[in-house]
Design a protein around this nucleic acid. Structure first.
Length: 228
DNA sequence: GTCTGATCATGA
DNA sequence: TCATGATCAGAC
């Protein structure tokens, strides 16, 4: 079963409404997808199922999920108390050939321009099949939020540019941090090293801290009217 | 290897 | 307890 991309925001939000409250098991069943039992092997499945049923242009392309609408889809695990349980991956950190890269033309900014957040209701350790799809909502960064994200991006990319990638830990960045993002410790990629000499290092990704996504969620919970 | 989709698991 | 660092799966 293949679902066509939504042609309007309204249509997309209608689809989001239709699946709110549905357990992952049912969504998977509707789509004819079998869920793995091993929690380690369940990573990312919820996101893929949501892409499928909402008509996102699947694939490994570095583009917004709904390219026609310029909307990025992100799931976000929260518990029954409304607490965000995990950080959110945004995009890969460019580590080499980064001349001319700016916040304005960055992947991060492009992806965070407009995001469809879909909370996944769960508890730490609950099997994927028993997690439940929550009320999705559209979000655009406020100018203050964007200013801080830009600051984080700039600080982190400055270190990359100066060959200090190995000095970057997850502690840097107010809203956005840099952490390893690879298959495992043996996945390596080229980066700018000390004195500008190329080195091999772990691929890294930009991640939104839970304190940031928690803010977005809290705003929606306080002002339900912004759920369109 | 590089991207997408994330969350697991353990040390602090 | 919880964030950091590490990992898991699949397309290409």
């Amino acid at each position: 079963m293949k679902i066509s991309p939504p042609s309007t925001e309204q249509q997309l939000l209608k689809r989001v409404q239709a699946i709110a409250g549905m357990p992952i098991a049912q969504l998977a069943d509707n789509l004819g997808v079998e869920l793995p039992e091993d929690p380690k092997k369940s990573k990312g499945i919820a996101g893929l199922l949501l892409e499928l049923c909402l008509g996102a242009s699947a694939g490994s392309k570095p583009e917004p999920d709904f390219q026609q609408l310029g909307i990025e889809l992100k799931t976000i695990p929260i518990n029954s108390a409304g607490k965000v349980l995990e950080s959110t991956y945004v995009s890969i950190v460019p580590l080499y050939n980064i001349l001319g890269l700016t916040w304005e033309n960055s992947e991060v900014k492009a992806k965070l321009t407009k995001v469809l957040w879909i909370p996944i209701l769960t508890e730490k350790g609950r099997p994927l099949k028993d997690r439940v799809i929550g009320q999705g909502f559209l979000w655009q960064a406020t100018s203050l939020q964007e200013a801080i994200l830009r600051q984080d991006w700039q600080e982190l990319m400055d270190k990359v540019a100066f060959g200090e990638i190995e000095q970057i830990t997850a502690k840097y960045g107010k809203y956005m941090q840099v952490r390893p993002k690879g298959a495992n410790a043996s996945a390596l990629t080229k980066a700018i090293g000390p004195d500008g000499v190329a080195i091999m290092t772990l691929p890294r990704g930009f991640y939104l801290r839970t304190c940031f996504t928690q803010q977005l969620l809290d705003e929606v919970l306080l002002h339900p009217s912004i759920i369109e």
